[in-house]
Amino acid sequence: MSADTPAEPVKKGHGCLTSVIGFVVVVAALTGLLSMCDSSTGGEDSDHLAKVACQDHVKKGLKDPSSAQFSDVVIDGPVDHQWTITGVVRATNSFGGTAVATWTCEARNDNGTYYTSYRLSE
C-alpha cells in the first residue's frame, strides 16, 4: 500500500431523510385509524357517554339525586348520532321511602356534547 492510494469516498446516504419520511407515514396512518374511532360516530365510548348523560339528567329530577340506583339499562342506537336509552331507577322519595320508576331518555351527540330529554313512568 502506497501513500498515493486515495481514500475511499464517503457515501452520502439518505438514511435520515428516509427515516423521517417513514415516521411521517406511520403517524399519518395512525391518525387516520384514530379518526375512524371518533366517539361521535358510535361505539362503546359514545354509548357510555350517552348513558351517563341520560342518567345525570334523570338524577337532577329526583328529590334525592345521590340515592339514585340504575338498573335494567338498555341502549338503542346510535342512529344519526342519537340514542334511545331506557331503564329503571330507584331513589328515596320525599317521605323517605323508595320510589321505583322506569325512564326513557333520548340523547343526541352534537360534536361531543350530549343533549338529553327524558320522561319517568311510575
Rank of each mutant, 00 (worst) to 15 (best):
M1T: 08
M1Y: 10
M1C: 02
S2K: 05
S2L: 02
A3T: 09
A3Y: 08
P6N: 09
P6E: 05
E8K: 13
E8H: 01
P9R: 12
V10W: 12
V10E: 14
V10D: 10
K11N: 12
K12Y: 11
G13K: 10
H14I: 11
C16R: 14
C16S: 15
S19K: 03
S19L: 14
S19E: 10
V20K: 01
I21E: 03
I21P: 02
I21Q: 06
I21M: 10
G22S: 14
G22R: 09
G22T: 08
G22Y: 05
F23Q: 04
F23K: 09
F23I: 08
V26E: 12
A28L: 08
A29C: 15
L30N: 11
G32V: 04
G32L: 09
L33R: 00
L34H: 08
L34N: 15
L34F: 13
L34Y: 09
S35Y: 14
M36E: 11
M36Q: 13
C37L: 14
C37I: 09
D38I: 00
S39L: 03
S39K: 13
G42H: 05
G42I: 12
G43H: 06
G43Y: 04
E44N: 08
D45P: 02
S46P: 01
S46R: 08
D47M: 07
D47W: 05
H48R: 15
L49G: 09
C54T: 05
C54K: 03
H57W: 10
H57G: 05
V58W: 04
K59P: 07
K60F: 12
G61N: 07
G61A: 13
L62E: 01
K63V: 15
K63M: 00
K63F: 06
P65L: 00
A68N: 01
A68P: 04
S71H: 07
S71Q: 06
D72G: 02
D72F: 03
D72A: 14
D72M: 01
V73G: 01
V73F: 07
V73Y: 00
D76F: 04
D76M: 03
D76C: 06
G77C: 10
P78E: 02
P78T: 06
V79I: 13
V79F: 11
V79N: 12
D80Y: 14
D80V: 10
D80R: 13
H81K: 14
Q82E: 10
Q82A: 15
W83L: 00
T84I: 15
I85R: 03
I85K: 04
T86G: 09
G87F: 05
V88S: 07
V88L: 13
R90Q: 15
T92W: 07
T92C: 00
T92F: 10
N93R: 02
N93P: 00
N93Y: 02
S94C: 00
F95I: 04
G96F: 07
G96M: 01
G97M: 02
T98N: 02
T98S: 06
A99R: 14
A101M: 09
T102E: 04
E106T: 15
A107L: 01
A107C: 11
R108G: 03
R108C: 07
R108N: 03
G112D: 03
G112L: 00
G112Y: 03
Y114T: 01
Y114S: 04
S117R: 08
Y118I: 09
Y118F: 15
Y118L: 05
R119A: 13
R119K: 15
L120G: 00
L120A: 08
L120Y: 10
L120H: 12
